[in-house]
Structure formats: structure tokens, C-alpha cells
Design a binder for these strands. Structure first.
Lengths: 146, 146
DNA sequence: GCTTGACCTCAACTTTACTTGAGGTTGCAC
DNA sequence: GTGCAACCTCAAGTAAAGTTGAGGTCAAGC
């Protein structure tokens, strides 16, 4: 833990591409916990670059900050991941990507059917709601794509 | 255009699974334009069910309401789509789904590499930023996944 | 030893996509 | 011809994910 290994917030911002304000915001949310100098300035570990990268990637996968926090907090001591932790998280994210792709593929398939059948009549379309069936048949919201 | 074909907002809500307030909100945003009774109550066409379904699907694809409005407004007279319009929109959405799937697949591939190489060292990882390269090499934000 | 850019806190504002509530009106069923 | 569920408007609130600004402090180079 050489002094030179501690980064001020501006450096971290430059290296991750995040705004300084965003990093402070993440600290607020408990996603990252920097040291402080005697003068109350934040000092980050190099490994925090990794942590922030993880956050950015997880966000791309559609996780909210709360969920990401949960993932990170589930690590032993809630610390920055070790290699093993890291791989575990990565694999879990991989499976989330798989699910997303599967969902999109399904949507695409249904959309294809919809285009194919010209189902503006909406009597058969899988994508949209069961139309008038909903009027005569069951109630309950969210027919579409769920 | 039989009187019986005009739906009050509550019926439309029930059939689409949307909240009444959400439908009013969409009207506000210009996504849908109901008739009014003499007493100022909204009356929707059956085809508006379709219009709302379209909105819901487009949202699932990650479009914002503004973009959806643009798509719908681009139709002749900005009216509810005809069969041909509909198919055109659907195909355009299909290609957006394709793009999303492609992006996710790429992410997944990179993630696999990342898991494989144990690149906590961050010297080779494609997913995260170029780490210290960013310090010594080029500047500029957003290294991650763009 | 001082100047100046980087840093600090805290409050308020922004955007998207709605929901909730107050206070009032309509229209269908009996 | 009346009751009451369903409708109306408009303002305010909510949640997520930050940004912006005011007013003030720190620390590194000359």
C-alpha cells in the first residue's frame, strides 16, 4: 500500500471515464468506500478502478445500483473482489446476459410470427394481448410479453 | 365507427393492462389522441389497444417514449398504423432487437475471455478499461464497453 | 508562503415515467 | 330523476441516477 497507489478522485474519474460527481454519488450509495486524507479528501485504491468497472458493466446489463450494491455487499467483508469472487460475479453476470438474450430471442420470434400473420386482427397475435378475450375472459393486467 | 366501438379509458386500461393514469400520461405526451364526449370524457378506438400494445413492446426494446412518439408520428398523418405501416414498424423493431442481441453476445464473449484469463491484472481485459494504459497512454472517457 | 487547481459538503435541480390526491363532473342503471 | 362508479383536471410526489452550484478547504509547485 504505497502512498503512490492511492488515487485522488479526479484520477479515478479520468481512468474510469466517470464524472467526479458520479463517483461521489456511488460512495453515497455505499458502492465504494475510499480512504480519507487528514484533510478529508478521498483517496482510492487502484483496485477501485476495477470495482467501478464492474459497476459500469453491471449497469450495462440492466442492473440498478441497488442490485449492484447487493452483489458487491454479498462478498466476504463487502470488500473489493478477489480473483475468485470476481469470477463468481462474472459468471453470475454471464447467466444474466444469457437470460436477456433468451428473452430478446423470444420477443423476436413472436414478432416474426406477428409480421408473418399480419395479425392486425389481434385474434391470434402472441405479442399483443389477447384483445377481446381479455374483455370476455380473464382479467388482470400486463398481458403483453410477460 | 359504431358507438359501441368507442372505449372509455377504464376499458382500455383493463384490456392493455395499463393504469388509467398511464394512458392519460401517454395522451399528454402525444402518443395517443382519443376523442372526447360532450361531457369531456375520453373515448378510444379499438385500434388504440394496438397502439398501446405497440408502445409497450417498443418500451421493452428499450425505446424511450420520445423515440416511440417519433416512430408513430412518422406514420402518414400520425394516425394509428395500417397493416403496411405496422409491418414496417415491426421490421424496424426486429432489427433493433437484432442489434441488442448482437451487443449482448459481444459482451458475453468478452466476459468469457475475462473469466478465462483471470484478468484481474487488467492488463489485457477487453471488458474493462485499459487501466494504467489510460494513465500513460490516451486520455478520454468511457473506456468500458463502448 | 502563497497561489491556484483540485477537492470538500450540502442542497437543489434534471430527466424519465409514471402515481397519488384533492376537488369537481358525467353518464348509465335503476 | 337520482345515486354513485367512473370519469375529469391540475398539482404534487416518487424513484433512479446523476448533475449543478454555492460557499468553503486542501495541497503541491513556484
Amino acid at each position: 500500500m504505497d502512498k503512490n497507489d492511492l488515487l485522488p478522485i479526479g484520477d479515478l474519474a479520468r481512468r474510469t471515464g466517470l464524472a467526479v460527481s458520479a463517483i461521489r454519488f456511488y460512495e453515497d450509495k455505499g458502492l465504494i468506500a475510499p480512504y480519507r486524507t487528514m484533510g478529508n479528501q478521498r483517496r482510492f485504491l487502484r483496485s477501485d478502478i476495477r470495482r467501478l468497472s464492474f459497476i459500469l458493466i453491471a449497469q450495462k446489463l440492466g442492473l440498478g445500483l441497488a442490485e449492484i450494491e447487493a452483489q458487491l455487499a454479498a462478498l466476504p467483508q463487502g470488500r473489493t473482489p478477489t480473483l475468485a469472487d470476481w469470477q463468481k460475479l462474472s459468471r453470475s453476470m454471464r447467466s444474466q446476459i444469457d437470460k436477456k438474450i433468451a428473452l430478446l430471442s423470444l420477443t423476436r420470434r413472436k414478432l416474426d410470427e406477428c409480421i408473418g400473420c399480419g395479425c392486425l386482427s389481434l385474434t391470434r397475435c402472441q405479442l399483443y394481448n389477447r384483445d377481446d378475450r381479455a374483455g370476455t375472459g380473464g382479467t388482470g393486467p400486463r398481458f403483453v410479453l410477460d
